[in-house]
Simulated scan of single mutants.
Amino acid sequence: MSVLAAIAVLAVLIVVHELGHFLAARLQGIYANRFSVGFGPVLLKYQGSETEYAIRAFPLGGFVGFPDDDPDSTIPPNDPNLLRNRPILDRAIVISAGVIANLIFAYFLLVTQIGFVGVQDFNYQPGVLVPEVASDISSAATKAGIKPGDIVLAVEGKQLGESQAGITLLMQEIQTHPNESLALDLKRGDQIVNLKVTPELGKDGKGQIGVRLSPNGKVVRKPVGGIVQAFTTGAEEFQRITVLTAQGLGQLVSNFGETADQIAGPVKIVEIGANIAKNDAASLFQFAALISVNLAIINILPLPALDGGQLAFLLIEAIQGKPLPTKIQDGVMQTGLMLLLGLGIFLIVKDTANLEGIQQLFR
């Protein structure tokens, strides 16, 4: 059920994005003849007066179709309500509406969570949690005997305490002591385990042991003082998430070699969402808001096959007074689409191979 909840979150965000494009077109009187949730074979469809609504087999996607290039369309090519015949501003509104819809939806998700569940805070407990250990049997953590769920209480006799600073201290010790043995005091269930781990020298010259670290403790929520505070606090949280997402994207571009392995595909996103749904279902609102903001920011990038790429074509048209030749636009968009599909397939295979259940098949 938790996996279905995570998939449902992604499906809703995609519907919101495509609904933004669709409503922006229809409210301006622009024809839109298809509205599909998902890709692949059609499972269910309904033919409205102007639009075919469909649910397709693979829910992690969707699209709004326009009759401009539909060979079966009976609409005259010079009809002013075809998207391509509208002024640049009208087309820009339609193209950017998906991104705007995702941002607005993310904000109201945060307001809803804060208003009904409360403001999220964290009740720290001693130590640093190790929620995940690299599946590679040759990793330093695996060799040392560190297991998922362990809580690191101390490193080299230094207590990690009850704060976010514990993660910083542990990371510093690991990164600054490559190829040197470090003594760790762990809590495993009700037992205290003492072991030694030797960080490996990474490509960046820093030590690494192959684990993911998280604060140890529990999420707590505090009620807000009314609807006005819910909207205000929601705006602050929305700003924080947006800034962090943009900064993360900037780090990915500027330091791609070291951050590329952190890119996650739909399978990994579903896995994370499933874990959240299983452990703290109320946090699904914030998870959905985070994914919605990411979807918006990524889509607005000026890359082929994304909304930002189409806006870039409109900008060129506005500057030179005429659109780029159709052949050039189609070639760029098709190349970009193939690259995105290739990246998507790669991420799906990579994330699927790293799932715990798949890993156990090969042990």
Rank of each mutant, 00 (worst) to 15 (best):
A5W: 12
A11Y: 02
V16W: 01
E18A: 00
L19Y: 14
G20Y: 00
G20Q: 01
R26L: 05
G29H: 07
I30P: 05
A32V: 03
N33D: 15
S36V: 05
L44K: 14
G48Y: 05
E50K: 12
T51Y: 06
F58H: 04
F58G: 04
L60P: 04
G61I: 07
G61R: 06
F63I: 08
V64A: 05
D69F: 12
P71V: 09
P71R: 09
P76M: 10
P77T: 12
D79E: 14
P80M: 08
R84V: 13
R84Y: 11
N85Q: 07
N85M: 10
R86M: 03
A92G: 11
I93P: 03
V94Y: 04
S96E: 06
A97C: 08
L103N: 04
A106R: 03
F108M: 09
I114W: 01
G118K: 04
V119L: 13
F122M: 02
V128E: 01
V128W: 00
P131C: 09
V133L: 07
D136R: 04
S139V: 01
K143H: 08
K143W: 02
P148H: 04
L153E: 12
V155S: 06
G157A: 05
L160A: 05
E162N: 12
E162H: 06
Q164L: 13
Q175S: 13
N179D: 12
S181Q: 11
A183E: 14
K187W: 03
R188A: 03
G189K: 10
G189V: 11
D190G: 10
V193G: 06
L195A: 10
V197G: 04
V197N: 06
T198G: 10
P199H: 02
P199V: 02
K203T: 12
D204C: 06
G205F: 09
K206I: 03
I209K: 00
G210N: 08
G210K: 03
L213R: 07
G217M: 04
G217P: 03
V220K: 15
K222V: 15
F231A: 15
I241E: 08
L244H: 04
Q247E: 14
Q251H: 11
L252S: 02
L252Y: 01
L252D: 02
G257V: 11
E258R: 13
A260M: 11
A264K: 12
G265L: 13
P266R: 01
V267D: 08
V267L: 10
K268G: 08
K268W: 05
V270T: 14
A274Q: 09
A274V: 11
N275V: 11
I276Q: 03
D280S: 12
A281T: 13
S283V: 05
F285C: 07
F287D: 01
S292G: 01
A296C: 04
I297Y: 00
N299A: 04
L303Y: 02
L311T: 03
L314G: 09
A318M: 09
Q320C: 08
K327E: 13
Q329I: 15
D330H: 13
G336I: 09
M338Y: 09
M338W: 11
L347T: 06
I348W: 03
T352S: 15
A353L: 15
E356H: 09
E356P: 04
G357T: 10
